[in-house]
Design a protein around this nucleic acid. Structure first.
Length: 165
DNA sequence: GTCACGATTTGT
DNA sequence: CAAATCGTGACG
């Protein structure tokens, strides 16, 4: 197992902190992947757009589990969207991966390109072929912050983070 | 059981 | 701007 794989403690932090830290790191499945360029945070509290807002259900179970796992859901019946579970176990924060360098921009496009499907839901990003590696940050990169895309509720919150070179 | 609704993408 | 497409959660 590569020494560059992000450890569990990386994910066991506040959701926004994890979201910002995720930018620039390398996401891969079976060795294929690239740097994460765009993410969105979905908060464990006060965030009506988050799936966990309605509480603990069969679907959101993964969000309440240990950090560093993948939460994959099907958007609009067609597009698998990949999220990274953050916060200590029991606190349902997560980060949506919206763009990966070289594999597409848009949460549904990058999953299709990398072959990520619903069957990857719940996979451990620390010990499985679906993982995130620490990547040295190039100089002169900054983070742009904007509202999240495609949601109606809690739409004003500044929770989308884009890596700007 | 039934039904309305999307954390999207693509084509008109 | 509208269609495609189906798992989920609310309701009864």
């Amino acid at each position: 197992m590569s020494a560059r794989v992000l450890p569990r403690r990386f994910y066991a932090r506040p959701t926004v902190e994890v979201a910002r830290s995720l930018l620039g790191q390398r996401l891969e499945l079976d060795g294929r992947g690239g740097r994460i360029l765009e993410v969105e945070a979905y908060l464990p509290e006060g965030d009506e757009a988050a799936h966990a807002w309605r509480g603990r259900t069969a679907r959101t179970e993964v969000l309440f589990g240990p950090p560093g796992h993948a939460y994959v859901f099907l958007a609009y019946g067609m597009y698998p969207c990949l999220n990274v579970v953050a916060e200590p176990e029991g606190i349902p924060g997560c980060v949506l991966i919206r763009a990966v360098e070289g594999w597409g921009d848009g949460p549904g496009k990058l999953t299709r390109a990398l072959g990520i499907t619903l069957r990857h839901n719940g996979w451990d990003l620390v010990t499985s072929p679906l993982r995130i590696l620490r990547q040295p940050a190039p100089a002169h990169e900054s983070i742009i912050v904007t509202p999240r895309i495609g949601i109606r509720r809690s739409a004003h919150l500044p929770l989308r983070f884009v890596l700007e070179t």
